[in-house]
Amino acid sequence: MANGFRNSGSSGRNARRRLMLATFLAVVVLLLNIALGGKLSSLARDIAAPIASVGGKAGEAIGANGYFTTRGALEAQIAALQAQLQQEQLQSGAYAALEQQNQSLSSLEHLAQTTPGLAAPIISSIISSPYGTFSIGAGSADSVSVGSLALTSGNFVVGKVSQVQAHQSLVTELFASGQQTPVTIDSASVVAAGSGGQAIAQVPHGVTVAVGDPVLSPQMGNRPVGVVQHVDSNPANAQQAVYVSLPVSLSSLQYVYVSP
């Protein structure tokens, strides 16, 4: 019994030593990552990207298996109808945004100008990141640079490239928690504070804001960054809270257009 007590004491001390070593190594790894300019992060994403790709394909194969046909068929129908609805909302929002751009007086804008850039696949899960980031399959070899904009097919800005590797990049969503984006809503210049998937802007009561109004970003070439989803205009508050989100689900996107 004495040996048992001694053994449990020594194993506890060993476990504690391992924990202290793990804590020390965690700090060293993170500091090293910062010192190396994110090379360890790049390595981690290089390891995770093919795993995510293989896992995604395996998931699709399992879903297409006949065993789950009935449930799968219903889910596919639901997904198709949701995608159709989102596409119509996107087109409606894009039209309103383009119409507003057309009305604003800018001698430098040419309606027929083609936006330079390239289409990049989204190669990571959208929902896994707690920081509102995701990876795309284009990098410095494709002329992608930090600060490049990631756009949907309707020219809505999804996010900005924040880290670039040779063949993949990390994009930070515009509406990630803590992100502040200067925007204009019905000609009012306000700041949209990201809260994960949507943003909230405080707009003075004198400004008339309606659901569906496009939200533009002057910093990003007056491109649309979302549409108004809800307006909380309680007169007891000094300002009205306007909730902004993209008219398309990020999870449904497979490609984004990256523009410098």
Partner: peptide, 21 residues
């Protein structure tokens, strides 16, 4: 006394954390 919990935390940050995020 799970050192792998700390390793998991580091892995999440290396994978998803962007500068300024």
């Amino acid at each position: 006394r799970a050192w792998e919990a700390i390793a998991l935390g580091v892995f999440m940050d290396l994978l998803w954390l962007a500068p300024g995020a």
